[in-house]
């Protein structure tokens, strides 16, 4: 009995260690975001802000760069999420319904695209975009985000299509509804949750993305939020850390909220991939 109590205590201790490791950077980000510039400049950092303030959030909103780049990030993420799903849905349907060699090639491509370093694709891609005069433009970045979200989105969507029983579709077609009517009336409503999950996934991918944005968008006037955040700390140093922390927290909210909605589906998807891989 004693041995068991000691073991349970050790387990809680270990779990507590994990919680501390995972939580303390997040807590520090929050704490920094709530501190006054005077407190930031003091040489004795404390966990709890002495005079908690929301002024840093207001400062972040006052920064022209941050608001503008957040708006641009939003446009790019929304557009690339919608385009990704519109482009991927028919292909996902084809992959799910007409299985065979196609499927293997698609899966093969998803895996291959993981192994090759992005640098190998990004240089020629940059040259293609330059040829199309799309460097330094948001549509250029959208195009890249769509391409790189597509394999995983396709993978997610075809799983959802597969979950819709083929008999439902065939029954509707037999009842005299045309093929397309059957798809629109029977299959489409059942796909809505899957489509929403894929939209959110594509949105998060684009909203969080940094390297392509860094290469495609050279001008500060077209920078997306991650680019602006990285350039935020200037020579003023410590005093600007408060607004930076506040802006970082704000930048995390959309991803975190959407992720909370889809995490269960992502988890099962990753699991399936890992077991098969």
């Amino acid at each position: 009995m004693r041995g068991r109590t000691v073991r349970t205590a050790l387990k809680y201790l270990a779990l507590l260690g994990y919680v501390v490791f995972l939580a303390f950077p997040l807590a520090w980000l929050l704490s920094t975001a709530l501190k006054t510039p005077q407190e930031m400049a003091s040489l004795d950092p404390t966990w709890i802000p002495r005079h908690p303030t929301l002024a840093n959030f207001a400062d972040a909103f006052d920064e022209q760069d941050i608001v503008g780049s957040a708006a641009r990030s939003l446009v790019v993420a929304l557009a690339s999420a919608v385009i990704t799903v519109v482009v991927a849905l028919p292909a996902a349907y084809a992959l799910a319904r007409y299985r065979g060699a196609l499927n293997k090639i698609a899966i093969g491509w998803v895996l291959v695209s993981q192994v090759f370093p992005v640098i190998l694709i990004i240089i020629p891609l940059f040259m293609v975009l330059r040829g199309l005069d799309l460097v330094n433009t948001l549509p250029g970045l959208m195009l890249v985000h769509v391409t790189f979200t597509l394999p995983f989105a396709l993978w997610m969507l075809q799983g959802y299509v597969r979950a819709v029983p083929r008999e439902l579709e065939e029954a509707a077609a037999v009842d005299g509804a045309g093929r397309l009517r059957a798809l629109a009336a029977v299959v489409a409503p059942l796909l809505v949750p899957g489509v929403v999950a894929t939209l959110l996934f594509a949105f998060i991918s684009s909203w969080n993305e940094f390297l392509f944005a860094l290469v495609v968008l050279k001008d500060p006037e077209v920078a997306t939020l991650p680019l602006t955040l990285v350039k935020f700390t200037g020579p003023e140093g410590v005093v600007r850390l408060g607004p930076l922390a506040a802006a970082s927290l704000l930048a995390t909210i959309p991803s975190l909220a959407f992720f909370a909605v889809i995490q269960r589906r992502l988890r099962s998807g990753l699991m399936a991939g890992a077991v098969k891989g």
Binding site: F24, W28, S248, A251, L256
Partner: peptide
């Protein structure tokens, strides 16, 4: 769920 950039900035604060 966090943007990698925010993770980097957060740890720079730490």
């Amino acid at each position: 769920a966090m943007p990698p950039v925010v993770i980097g900035l957060m740890w720079r604060l730490v």
